[in-house]
């Protein structure tokens, strides 16, 4: 059994230096510099929010809010962490806020039939090719749906760590910085999230 090489390096120091230069330019009223920062991170932030919230449209809303907050607070960015870490921190807080509001409002059932992205042009669920190996294709699709459902139902803290590490490939150090907790806590949460997911998959019909 070959293990995956986690955690992997996520961002180089050169990219971080470049981010700082763009932040400085944005602070000097250079909107193009801020646009460059948005272009660099928008897909990652939206992907993160989409996995956290299980809703692409809401993820775009959250991502807009993340960049607006970042823009408004750009002066307070001290480069104690990387710009991407700072964005992820804002995104995590906003996603957790949204998830709490959802819990307070009437619960929307998660439909396994509904396409993840709702709109066809954004790409719906991956439809397995059943012509070759029908039983394996169905089984694989069931597995995927069970994974999505379990991740969606996980406690926010476990889900955040799982999405950052196992979906987005962030290193433990960066996750710890983003969440403001020790690396040991990140590892512990990740272990419980993975084990929970594994047990749920085992129970599937």
């Amino acid at each position: 059994m070959v293990a995956m090489a986690y955690p992997k390096t996520w961002m180089g120091s050169e990219e971080a230096d470049n981010d700082m230069a763009l932040v400085e330019r944005a602070l000097d009223q250079d909107l193009a510099a801020f646009e460059a920062l948005v272009a660099r991170y928008q897909n990652r932030i939206i992907a993160y929010a989409a996995r956290m919230l299980n809703d692409h449209d809401e993820a775009e809303d959250v991502a807009q809010e993340v960049f607006i907050k970042a823009y408004r607070s750009l002066e307070s960015f001290r480069a104690e962490s990387s710009f991407s870490t700072w964005l992820y921190r804002i995104a995590t807080n906003l996603c957790i806020d949204r998830a709490r509001k959802r819990k307070r409002s009437p619960q929307q059932a998660y439909s396994l039939d509904e396409p993840f992205d709702k709109e066809e042009e954004r790409g719906g669920r991956d439809v397995p090719d059943l012509t070759q190996e029908p039983s394996r294709g169905v089984e694989r699709e069931e597995l995927r749906q069970q994974v999505r459902l379990t991740v969606a139902e996980m406690p926010d803290k476990l889900r955040a760590v799982l999405v950052m590490c196992d979906i987005q490939g962030m290193a433990y150090e960066q996750i710890a910085q983003t969440l403001g907790c020790p690396i040991g806590t990140v590892k512990s949460r990740l272990f419980h999230a993975r084990a929970d997911l594994a047990r749920r998959l085992r129970l599937r019909p």
Binding site: M1, A3, M4, Y6, L143, R144, V147, V151, L162, D166, I167, R194, A195, L197, A198, L201
Partner: peptide
């Protein structure tokens, strides 16, 4: 767990 990680 490995299977879950691969799916993620």
């Amino acid at each position: 767990m490995k299977l879950a990680m691969n799916e993620l």
